[in-house]
Computed example of a mutant assay.
Amino acid sequence: MPIPKTTLAIAGLLAIAAATAWTTLAPAAQRYVFAASWQPGFCETQPDKRECRNQGRKSFEATNFTLHGLWPQQTDYCGVPSSDINADKSGRWSSLPSVDLSPALRTRLDEVMPGTRSSLERHEWTKHGTCSGQDQETYYGNALWVLDELNQSAVRQLFASNIGKRVSQDQIRGAFDKAFGPGAGQRVRVSCERDGNRRLVTELTIGLVGTIKPGASLAELIAAASPTDGGCDGGIVDPIGFQ
């Protein structure tokens, strides 16, 4: 017995709807931006931040990049109550729900993310981490893995060996090419801020596409991202402490 055309049409619409829902719920490749701060430069322009008041010359942030965030690119504030969204947008980060991490991960995060003194981790989880599809421990564990890979590379070596000196966008992008393969530097944007007559490098943002987890290839994650404009053409790698 032939199947009525209306039944076939409905079945076709249902199949399209199901495929669309699957694509929405399970994207083939997750897109991220990873933000790494050069903390001395950031603090030079934000001296009143809690994390900037007592910088130590032998501290982690004196010679390493620090964690700003890992940002899924599809959307923000996934399943977050409007009260928390309002608190986050108004800068009342300390009133946001605390981030529940294992003691070991909490200790590491406090070291490599100085902004935890200003509840940055609560803001980052509320706005970005809730859209990662991961729990808090996994999300921050993955972010720290990316940071570790960056700090073990020629990029950190470039900054650490040029403290107090100017580095150019070309030098930074060249260090990414050296560390993570040709073209990696084209996926990196440099952010700078003015401090009087000086221009300081304050942050690098890096495009990533794929599954971020310890043991993955950061070079492959970077290569899968789209090229971006380079941002500022260079600036001073500020030393720890106020100048």
Rank of each mutant, 00 (worst) to 15 (best):
G196M: 07
W93E: 00
I236F: 06
I236Y: 05
T107V: 09
D148M: 08
T45N: 00
G115V: 09
K5Q: 07
L150S: 10
Y77K: 05
G181S: 11
I212V: 15
K89E: 03
T116M: 10
S98K: 12
S82I: 11
G235M: 08
I240D: 00
L105I: 10
N162Q: 13
V209C: 00
S98Q: 11
G230K: 09
S132H: 09
A21Y: 08
I16V: 15
I3G: 00
P114Y: 08
P2K: 07
F159T: 11
L144S: 08
A104F: 02
G12S: 08
A28K: 12
S90N: 10
W71Q: 03
G231D: 04
L208H: 08
S90L: 03
Y139M: 09
V188L: 10
W71E: 01
F60D: 03
L70V: 11
Y77C: 03
C131F: 10
L200P: 09
S118R: 04
G234M: 08
S191Q: 12
L13S: 04
F159D: 04
T7V: 15
G141P: 14
L109H: 10
K178F: 00
G181Q: 09
N64W: 01
T202H: 03
S132V: 13
S94Q: 10
T126G: 04
A143K: 12
R156W: 00
G129N: 07
A26W: 12
A160M: 05
V155D: 01
F42M: 06
D195T: 02
A18C: 11
V190T: 15
K49T: 00
A219W: 05
H123M: 08
T20A: 15
G115R: 06
A219S: 15
P114M: 08
R117N: 03
A21L: 14
A143I: 12
N151Y: 05
P97V: 13
T23E: 02
A36V: 07
D238Y: 12
E203P: 01
W22M: 12
G174C: 12
L25I: 08
G12I: 12
R108L: 14
G115I: 05
R108W: 01
D100V: 14
L147Q: 07
A17H: 01
A9E: 03
S83T: 14
Q169T: 11
A223Q: 13
